[in-house]
Computed example of a mutant assay.
Amino acid sequence: MQYRPLGRTAWNVSTVSFGAWAIGGTWGPVDDAESMAALHRALDLGVNFFDTADVYGDGHSERLIGRLRRERSEPFYVATKMGRRLSPHAAEGFTRESLTAFAERSLVNLGFEALDLVQLHCPPTQVYYMPEVFGVLDDLVRAGKVRHYGVSVEKVEEGLKAIEYPGVQSVQVIYNMLRQRPAERLLPEAQRRGVGILARLPLSSGLLTGKLTAQSTFAQDDHRHFNREGAGFDRGETFSGIDYAAGLEAVEALKPLVPAGMSLAQMAIAWISMNPAVTCSIPGCKRVAQVDENLAAADLPPLSDAAMKAVAEVYERHAKPLVHPRW
């Protein structure tokens, strides 16, 4: 496993970490015993950073990670997210009272004395223009409820605005072989300012495993079934926002580029690590086999210049017109 600094936190975190959305729900059936086995396996293999949210299974994902900390002695960091519990999910709801309540609820779910890293969970764009919201986060740090804070964004522009606030330590953003726009401005600027980047959806909701087909079906409660058009939340969170059929075409174009000795999923994760501005990717896992395959990517040799160029050409041809202007 390799490690990189996360912003100005003085933490060094595993370049391939653990995304805990899947163990909470909306990715089909989950089994807690299987989820705990996956969490333990990740720690065994050197992961020291776990990303979750208070809405993943209505706190279930947080509670599982809290259990992991009680069952293991190794130190590790936990990032959670808050704000999506607001109904309606509107900028005016991001008040001192609501943010404090969300933080305190996550503390209970996790069983922690302080949240390692809390992130605003893809709030409305207007929130990034409300300095009072970031003032509340500063106060939560001063009160000892939160050690550090960051943001999870939908759009590049939101990330660029967020890092103007000096307390923001990290930006979580969708960045993968089918969503490359963050590399143009956001990633270099975050690196310049000493802000960590957490790359979510590194496998584009499973598209970049190469295992999905036109005949693949998904459970009713799986967002890959109900959110393809953005019915539940931002469309970009499902298959990176690319039309499913177009995504499958892009994957077919990527498959011949996979170097010998690695899978397409491992190449996708290795591709993200090629950008030094990225602190870590957070592939979702809910089974030990997924952990093993994803984490093996951390020890692979760098991709060649020719491979990186070829991936860029696939993006230009198959994905850029569909996703680049939107996020």
Rank of each mutant, 00 (worst) to 15 (best):
R8M: 09
W11K: 03
N12G: 09
V13R: 09
A20F: 06
W21A: 14
A22V: 06
I23W: 00
G25Q: 01
E34S: 14
M36I: 13
L43H: 05
G46S: 07
F49L: 14
F49I: 06
F50L: 08
F50W: 05
V55L: 11
Y56H: 12
G57F: 01
H60D: 11
R63N: 07
G66R: 00
R70D: 13
P75W: 06
F76A: 08
A79C: 14
R85P: 05
R85A: 13
R85M: 12
H89N: 11
E92M: 07
T95M: 03
R96S: 09
T100R: 15
N109I: 02
E113D: 15
V127C: 09
Y129P: 01
D138E: 15
L140C: 07
V141I: 15
V146R: 03
H148E: 11
V151A: 09
I163N: 06
G167S: 09
V168E: 07
S170I: 02
S170F: 02
V173G: 04
L178E: 02
R179H: 10
R181N: 07
R185S: 01
A190T: 04
R200T: 04
L207H: 07
S216K: 09
T217A: 11
Q220W: 10
R224F: 01
R224G: 05
F226S: 11
A231R: 15
G236F: 12
F239H: 08
G241Y: 02
A253R: 15
A253N: 00
L254P: 13
M262D: 11
S263L: 07
M267P: 02
A268Q: 00
W271E: 01
S273T: 12
N275G: 00
V278L: 08
A289V: 13
E293M: 10
L295S: 05
A296T: 07
A296P: 00
A297R: 02
A306G: 04
V311C: 01
E313S: 14
V314Q: 03
E316H: 11
H318L: 01
H318M: 01
W327I: 04
